[in-house]
Design a binder for these strands. Structure first.
Lengths: 143, 143
DNA sequence: GTCCGTGCAAAAACTTTGCAACCCC
DNA sequence: GGGGTTGCAAAGTTTTTGCACGGAC
């Protein structure tokens, strides 16, 4: 079970739906989940939680800084736990699998580019879309 | 007027809707347009073109390599002319304005990272989301 | 003339919102 | 007990699709 304080510390009431969604992020094999992914997992464990609530909870968690949202190709928003460290993503276009990476030099140059142009960086995301049709890619039904 | 051969060379029939959409990309002040942007501009010039056709034409143009599609924050797909050179984007979260940039070192490191992990890069996009609330940013109604 | 292309309306896909019942503190 | 939270259904947004008509070659 997740620690209820993760919610209280952000001023969020501790409710069953919130705890269950948070648990999923802490226990799932995949770090990156869509609202639909979460809804299905909750259905699987017969938690009686509506899809609308899943969306609301994800939005609140993102605003609270517990989760980070990404929009990869494919139209669906993807969420992952915010564990502090920024990183970028490799996304397989075949199976939807996501790998993370971090490159200090790339970060440095991004900051420089924005600064040179007088912009304050709010957020930045580097998405590398790949095919991993080999063994590295356990083709799973694209969710 | 755009050159009809741009279409024929890609195996696309030369039709009024296709030519008009292509023209918009060649003549618009903004390089980056959404389907809605284009539809509105066409309405303005009383071209009788349906929104569904705009979507179909944009999809065909992207597949033909005439346009490139991006998904920035905000849910709407954005298209720009494919002029060959890859580049990345700075996107203002206040006004939607888009600036382009290219950094050879960043490109090099992306390629290296994908290669190290055994992935074939299909596409890659670096989005830097910024606030340009100063003079640099002519706040326009976010479209 | 043959096909592909188009407009319109309907549907699909994803997400948000209104509202009454419910539960945390 | 009161105000935030939830489930359901309905609505919103963006994009796609079905179908009959129309235009390119």
């Amino acid at each position: 079970m997740s620690d209820p304080r993760e919610l209280r510390n952000q001023g969020l009431k501790v409710t069953a739906p919130r705890m269950k969604v948070l648990d999923l992020f802490h226990t799932s094999a995949e770090r990156h989940l869509t609202a639909e992914d979460i809804y299905r997992k909750l259905l699987d464990e017969h938690a009686d939680i509506g899809l609308a609530t899943v969306y609301r909870v994800l939005t609140q968690f993102e605003q609270a800084g517990l989760l980070v949202r990404h929009h990869f190709e494919g139209g669906k928003a993807v969420y992952e736990l915010n564990e502090g460290g920024h990183h970028d993503h490799l996304v397989c276009m075949q199976c939807g699998r996501v790998e993370e990476f971090y490159d200090a030099e790339i970060e440095k140059r991004q900051a420089k580019i924005a600064k040179e142009r007088g912009f304050a960086i709010r957020d930045h995301q580097l998405h590398i879309y790949v095919d991993c049709t080999k063994s590295a890619c356990p083709h799973r039904p694209k969710g």
